[in-house]
């Protein structure tokens, strides 16, 4: 395989990894910080993609990004209100919103399940024109997602150190403490999920625009893929400052895509992506669990062996 072919693969993995790392950063906020497993992620990702595409197609390439993020905020708000104000379990709230979003997404896409942006002006086509005669020509996708990821990481590093950010982290870390303190857990959960889903929406919007199309399944399985990336990132850079851990999320996402790309080269069929991500999540969560159980298992095994003797 030639060097340029390898670079091509790495570039694709980087682009996809970085774009989807925005969703990983969203889960970093909702799952790692707020301790809510937000199962509306799939639907919200598609919502961001659909809203972004529709706005871009209607001739507003720059408006498409805040529009997609705003749609994400709305989706997160609904999920949060269901679980904080209406007594619905947080997992169930996510599933309900996810299901509802399927219809909403088709409605947003004009009763179609596929939108084409081949001739649409997007931030990517604009960046392509901008970079035409520079050394970065052809790297518009990378440039845009790197800017987006950097902005989100800086935002998170600053935000999670504000009083509101601290309150959000405490809500996820020790709900007992928060309940008997002057922090309103309803408020912190709502803010946390709104912000997280804004990033998920942004992630979907950028993926759709770089691929120049949206279909209704663009977000399916995204929550598992993002969780897998998050857990990979955590094993590499799980300790230290918030900024470092956030960078770890991005690294995890890129590693996931690299491994996946290599597996594709080794003739793994593309449809295996979701199974691979599921297995990674299982290993990453079950692994540490078995590690804690290992001493006890060993003793039991040793005991039964003695009996057998």
């Amino acid at each position: 395989m030639s060097l340029s072919a390898i670079w091509g693969l790495v570039q694709t993995a980087l682009e996809l990894g970085l774009t989807c790392s925005l969703t990983v950063l969203a889960l970093f906020l909702s799952y790692s910080m707020l301790n809510v497993c937000d199962l509306s992620t799939d639907g919200c990702f598609t919502l961001g993609a659909a809203v972004g595409a529709v706005v871009a197609i209607s001739g507003h390439p720059y408006l498409s990004i805040p529009a997609a993020m705003g749609a994400g905020v709305l989706s997160g708000f609904v999920t949060a209100v269901l679980q904080t104000k209406m007594g619905i379990d947080s997992l169930l709230a996510g599933i309900i919103v996810n299901t509802g979003l399927y219809s909403i997404n088709i409605a947003v896409m004009g009763k179609s399940s596929l939108l084409n942006m081949n001739r649409t002006e997007t931030v990517f086509t604009d960046m392509k024109d901008l970079l035409k005669d520079t050394p970065l020509a052809g790297f518009q996708d990378l440039v845009i997602v790197i800017i987006a990821v950097a902005l989100v990481i800086v935002f998170l590093a600053l935000f999670l150190r504000t009083r509101l950010g601290l309150a959000i982290r405490a809500t996820g870390n020790n709900p007992d403490m928060v309940r008997s303190s002057s922090i309103n857990p309803v408020f912190t959960t709502i803010v946390g999920l709104c912000v997280a889903n804004a990033f998920t929406g942004l992630s979907g919007c950028l993926l759709a625009q770089s691929q120049k199309s949206v279909n209704i399944d663009i977000g399916s399985g995204m929550v598992t893929i993002a969780l897998a990336s998050l857990l990979i990132g955590q094993t590499f850079m799980g300790r230290g400052s918030i900024a470092k851990r956030a960078v770890g999320m991005v690294v995890g996402s890129v590693i996931f895509r690299l491994v996946y790309t290599i597996a594709l080269r080794l003739n793994m069929p593309a449809f295996m992506l979701k199974l691979v991500s599921s297995v990674i999540v299982v290993i990453a969560i079950a692994g540490p669990y078995f590690k804690t159980q290992a001493p006890m298992l060993k003793r039991r095994l040793a005991g039964s062996r003695k009996e057998a003797d």
Partner: peptide
């Protein structure tokens, strides 16, 4: 353990 957030 109830009055403070362990990861912070």
């Amino acid at each position: 353990m109830r009055g403070s957030a362990p990861a912070m």
